[in-house]
């Protein structure tokens, strides 16, 4: 466990010492505030975070992969992967450490958006239920998005490729409800259930359904698991 910690800690330090992560966080906050303001500036302003959450899910598709793209791709490019894989560290410890680091950074960024909540509380009387459930959903959603990025970063030494492929996968998962619309019956249900977005909407409405929590946790563990396998498979290639 100490090694997981060491890997995570090193990555977190790199996040905080590199401009990329700050830029990503900044863009996230700027765009998020854009969406936040939308609810307030229409003719019938609502004290809700609903637009913010909707917007954040789209922004995360683009930004989560930029947080994760470096994680293993860079190790492969620099050759430091050789050090990691010849240290007495298990592959899952490496992957888990890296994943935790990206999650911590994302959580940090999301925590900063609590500023919006603060504004609402000061100037209005928002319903706290959907806000907290929305945040729970956003964190789960973000965790899943990061795990997809983690996998693509494990598979290539090119950071750009890692990021773009992850964005592609996330977009497909995001827009499955479009595809589901053209289908009927069981296939429609399946395609819809796979989708990232369809599981998020309930959180935003203030509904915490274990089904949705299980979906995100399962998706996340699936991609983290695949990443571990992908790293292991490097040894056999």
């Amino acid at each position: 466990m100490r090694t997981v910690q060491a890997v995570a800690w090193k990555e977190i330090q790199i996040y905080f010492s590199s401009p990329t992560a700050y830029i990503v966080a900044m863009i996230f906050l700027a765009l998020a505030s854009f969406f936040f303001v939308r609810d307030l500036s229409n003719p019938f302003p609502q004290a809700s975070m609903s637009s913010f959450f909707q917007g954040a899910t789209i922004i995360l598709i683009l930004l989560a992969p930029t947080l994760t793209m470096r994680l293993l791709a860079e190790e492969q490019k620099l050759g430091t992967i050789e050090l990691l894989l010849t240290s007495p560290v298990r592959d899952w410890e490496v992957i888990l450490g890296k994943y935790i680091a990206s999650l911590v950074f994302l959580l940090g960024t999301i925590v900063l958006t609590l500023y919006f909540v603060l504004l609402l509380v000061i100037f209005a009387d928002p319903d706290p239920g959907p806000i907290w459930s929305g945040y729970l959903g956003l964190i789960l959603y973000g965790a899943a998005a990061l795990s997809v990025g983690l996998l693509t970063s494990t598979l290539t030494s090119n950071q750009i490729v890692a990021a773009v492929v992850a964005m592609g996968i996330l977009l497909v998962l995001y827009f499955t409800d479009f595809a589901a619309g053209t289908l009927t019956g069981l296939p429609a249900t399946i395609v819809n259930e796979i989708g990232l977005k369809s599981h998020f909407d309930d959180f935003e409405r203030g509904v915490i359904d274990t089904k949705h929590i299980a979906y995100y946790l399962l998706l996340t563990s699936f991609f983290v698991f695949l990443s571990i396998r992908a790293l292991e498979s490097r040894r056999w290639r």
């Binding site: 090193k10 790199i14 010492s17 620099l78 050759g79 992967i81 050789e82 010849t86």
Partner: peptide
């Protein structure tokens, strides 16, 4: 202890 051919270093550390 291993020193690979391309010295594996984290350049930003």
């Amino acid at each position: 202890g291993y020193l690979p051919e391309t010295v594996p270093l984290y350049t930003d550390m």
